[in-house]
């Protein structure tokens, strides 16, 4: 881990400032701007792709304890969650519950098989 002062600086600048600048801009713009303008649509697409990229990385190069779980289990559980979410008419609790059920189920089966 890098030293403490550097971490706090990063948290303040890259964390609070980099985030709240958008909330502040949104507050100022709420007095009449078009959130559907081309620039805003592009910016939203970039942020969506970035978060999706983060999701892919968290699955492919998992952190901490998740690294001990097999790739097959992670992908199976992930796919199950997405499918259950879409099939249930986008109900979050169902999607998450199915993903977690598959996570434990597949891990138990694969661990027993090995």
């Amino acid at each position: 881990m890098p030293d403490n002062a550097w971490i706090w600086l990063t948290l303040a600048i890259a964390g609070t400032a980099a985030n709240d600048i958008w909330r502040l801009a949104g507050l100022l713009l709420s007095r009449g701007a078009d959130p559907e303008s081309p620039v805003m649509l592009w910016v939203r697409d970039v942020s969506t792709a970035l978060v999706a990229g983060l999701v892919a990385r968290m699955l492919l190069v998992p952190a901490a304890e998740l690294a001990a779980i097999g790739f097959t289990v992670r992908i199976l559980a992930f796919g199950t969650g997405v499918a259950a979410y879409l099939l249930s008419g986008k109900r979050l609790t169902i999607g998450l519950a199915c993903a977690e059920a598959m996570f434990f189920g597949a891990h138990a089966v694969l661990a027993a098989g090995l």
């Binding site: 985030n19 709240d20 958008w22 949104g26 970035l50």
Partner: peptide
């Protein structure tokens, strides 16, 4: 990277 993910907060705040 954080600033780009934070962008999604802008349209929410505006609305």
């Amino acid at each position: 990277a954080v600033a780009f993910t934070g962008v999604r907060l802008l349209p929410m705040t505006v609305s």
